[in-house]
């Protein structure tokens, strides 16, 4: 440890590093939710799926010593949660938001229950790639320790953006999301599409959880999520149901979250509670600036209960 005094340079480095470190759960949950919402359903239960995925990934890794098996197990658990949500919601007059809240409580409760024996043990971490080899500054190197899941998430955002626009599956998803009647006229079954879309969303959200327990902060405890799954669901609206927007929003939230500790570390110590509120203030400002009483949110799928 021969760190030079980098002073105020620590703040931008911390924001970049924080954006990369903290954003991955936001990214996966919001991408998952984008798929689900594009099919015309809202799954608010992703916070529960995230926490349950976090616990499952950690528990499986502690037992098998393979973090990738942990990620796979989390995906399986997330898929189950998604299928459950999609299955209940296909019944008439079932409110998807209410079911989502119920599943959120169920997921966190089950995770706390099954996770009890796994608070103490340590599990091996997911691998990270060092992209800071070009720099002599240890802080830069540390900030550019990039986890594989972050890269996968970034690639996935790009892929989903392309797939929504140009592939048949993307088109089917969008049709179902915009008009059930049109979808039925095309011979599609909206319930099946939504079931699969919710399952995919659940699987992605659970990967976000796996990142929390297997990389950063890298251990399972009951406060590991502290509401990140819920924030990510809100990010989808912020990102206008666009996967690339999700990526940007996740980075923004990650970076804003790093602002508070980074400013304190360079001696800006007054009013840290305000800095901690920065991401939320930012969201409010953007939402207010871009909303209009006269029309639905641009980009909102027509079948969404909140857009109707």
């Amino acid at each position: 440890m021969d760190a030079g005094d980098i002073g105020w340079w620590g703040v931008p480095i911390a924001i970049v590093g924080g954006a990369i470190r903290v954003s991955t759960p936001f990214l996966f949950v919001s991408l998952g939710e984008t798929i689900t919402e594009r099919s015309g359903r809202i799954n608010l239960g992703l916070e529960g799926t995230l926490v349950f995925g976090a616990m499952t990934a950690y528990a499986v890794t502690v037992v098998t010593l393979s973090p990738w098996l942990g990620v796979l197990a989390a995906m399986a658990a997330g898929t189950l949660f998604g299928l459950f949500h999609g299955w209940i919601c296909k019944f008439p007059r079932v409110n998807d938001i209410a079911i989502g809240i119920a599943l959120m409580l169920l997921g966190t409760g089950l995770a706390f229950f099954f996770g009890k024996p796994f608070i103490q043990p340590s599990a091996p971490d997911l691998p990270a790639i060092s992209l800071g080899w070009w720099s002599d500054i240890p802080q830069v190197r540390a900030a550019l320790q990039i986890n594989v899941l972050f890269l996968i998430g970034a690639a996935l955002a790009l892929f989903l953006w392309w797939a929504f626009r140009t592939t048949r599956i993307g088109l089917v998803l969008r049709v179902v999301g915009d008009s059930s009647d049109a979808a039925r006229a095309m011979g599609l079954n909206p319930d099946t599409v939504r079931l699969l879309a919710t399952a995919a969303g659940g699987a992605l959200a659970a990967i976000g959880g796996a990142y929390l327990t297997l990389y950063y902060p890298g251990s399972w405890n009951e406060g590991v999520s502290s509401g990140q799954g819920l924030m990510a669901v809100a990010l989808v609206i912020f990102a206008r149901w666009n996967p690339l927007g999700c990526f940007a929003a996740a980075l923004l939230f990650g970076g804003a979250g790093a602002l508070g500790p980074a400013l304190q570390s360079v001696g800006v110590t007054q009013g840290y509670y305000l800095f901690y509120a920065a991401p939320y203030v930012l969201t409010l400002v953007v939402m207010i600036l871009t909303s209009s009483p006269g029309r639905a949110l641009a980009g909102a799928p027509g079948e969404l209960t909140v857009a109707k």
Binding site: R21, A142, L212, P217, N221, G223, Q228, G257, Q264, S265
Partner: peptide, 12 residues
């Protein structure tokens, strides 16, 4: 108890 913020604080 705020796991992510504590990790960020250590990094900073």
């Amino acid at each position: 108890s705020l796991a992510v913020k504590e990790a960020e604080a250590v990094n900073a």
